[in-house]
Design a binder for these strands. Structure first.
Lengths: 243, 243
DNA sequence: CAGTGGTCTAGACCACGAA
DNA sequence: TCGTGGTCTAGACCACTGG
């Protein structure tokens, strides 16, 4: 039986510290396999729920990997991925010291096409909100923004004045986003985009496709078209953490 | 008594979805106060541990704020920015179940142009490493990767076999990246890109410009050109899983 | 004081992987 | 089949807040 320190912190925190210390000193370093939950229960004299919580939190923090039916292992060094930050376009333009203005071309309810209904993962056909807005930087159109919005989550979307509040701001205020999907591609401008952005048909555009979720429900689907010559998505990012 | 959906997901996930949906639809929006744990236990017909776990996870994800002795509240809206994850292209291709191969076109030391030296923030003119690699997905060229590498940080870059190890992997291994800058734009393919990617001159390409830092020193500068019709940068990201 | 969230337990059933 | 982790419950005690 191993004694945990007699401090004021919760038991599961002590268990976490105990495990992290043993990882650090390499005690389980041989095959990187930890004792099973039941073994920890026996050796530490705490309940399984407490051990489990400690292991679960260390797993979600990236220190451990758990496989049902197999065991718990020390996670390999962190995966190599890089994050890009995408900002609200209105805020971004203002931050650069330029003036932002938007024109609302469409704001309506509509029946989704079959493809859209599929993207929303709707079981039934229900009507959705649809908006098309052009965003200007110093009176030059830089982004054409087409949005489809789930009325179940954001009921009054069609009654807003989006020349005053940016669509993005309004949506973020109204519903928490739990997941975001982005797809970025480069496409030639079609007739509509060319017209609204004031560029030639066929010239290069950035297309940013975005879906957002609230819980298991698709909240919004957006198609953001940027005039390629006038706009770049940029970001500088510091992978902060460790602990 | 409220019915939770009859899906395969764990109960606490259903409770989380239920709560997020109710936040989204503004049911508790008045004073932003949620029902107490015991009220949720009663109305959902699950145990308090399960409700508590759902609330705890939503709290650590930043959606809720809990005060002992007071109650649970909806957190104020989070800062409005969205992150896109950019993965190592080789890993990404393999993960999709396709085959990856690369051809090294150039691997040399060179004197930087004035512009490059400026980007590296060099005080003096020193030579740097330069590589050009084409990445193939199922024998179709999808990315042209031009890299400039600071020899002070990565001494033996020019002696590696980048058909075996991806440049990205090698660099991540050799030096810790503390900061990354990305700029994404859409450009028409120039002659060189068109030739190596096997596309027409002038067709749309995604251009990803990247600089990485180790501390205050610029480690690498990369120019990644993607054939627009063949490749999209995509990602699905959960804010809840970060930080 | 009553009500809130925070923690902890003992015991149970399940899905999965390996022998 | 057995051991693993994943989930869930009922009940308990605690610390904290407010009236």
């Amino acid at each position: 039986m191993i004694d945990l320190p007699d401090t004021a912190s919760p038991l599961y925190e002590k268990v976490k510290d105990y495990i992290l210390t043993n990882i650090g000193t390499g005690r389980w370093g041989k095959d990187r396999k930890l004792p099973s939950e039941n073994e920890l229960v026996a050796s530490l004299g705490v309940s399984r729920m407490t051990v489990h919580r400690a292991l679960r939190e260390l797993t979600s923090a990236g220190f451990l990997i758990r496989l049902q039916g197999v065991g718990t292992f020390i996670a390999p060094p962190r995966p190599q991925s890089t994050l890009i930050e995408i900002n609200n376009i209105a805020a971004e333009i203002v931050e650069r010291g330029n003036s932002h203005r938007s024109e609302v071309l469409v704001l309506e309810t509509m029946m989704p096409t079959k493809e859209l209904a599929l993207s929303f993962e709707f079981a039934k056909r229900v009507s959705i909100y649809h908006s098309v807005v052009v965003n200007f930087e110093n009176d030059l159109p830089v982004q054409l923004e087409e949005r489809f919005v789930n009325p179940g989550l954001i009921p009054d979307y069609d009654k807003q004045d989006f020349t005053k509040t940016a669509t993005y701001d309004y949506l973020m205020q109204k519903t928490p986003v739990t997941e975001v999907e982005h797809i970025i591609s480069a496409i030639p401008a079609d007739k509509e985009a060319a017209q609204h952005l004031g560029i030639d048909v066929g010239s290069c555009c950035l297309l940013l496709h975005r879906r957002t979720w609230t819980g298991a429900i698709v909240a919004t689907i957006s198609k953001l078209t940027y005039a390629g010559s006038r706009y770049s998505l940029g970001s500088r990012y510091s992978p902060s953490k460790a602990s």
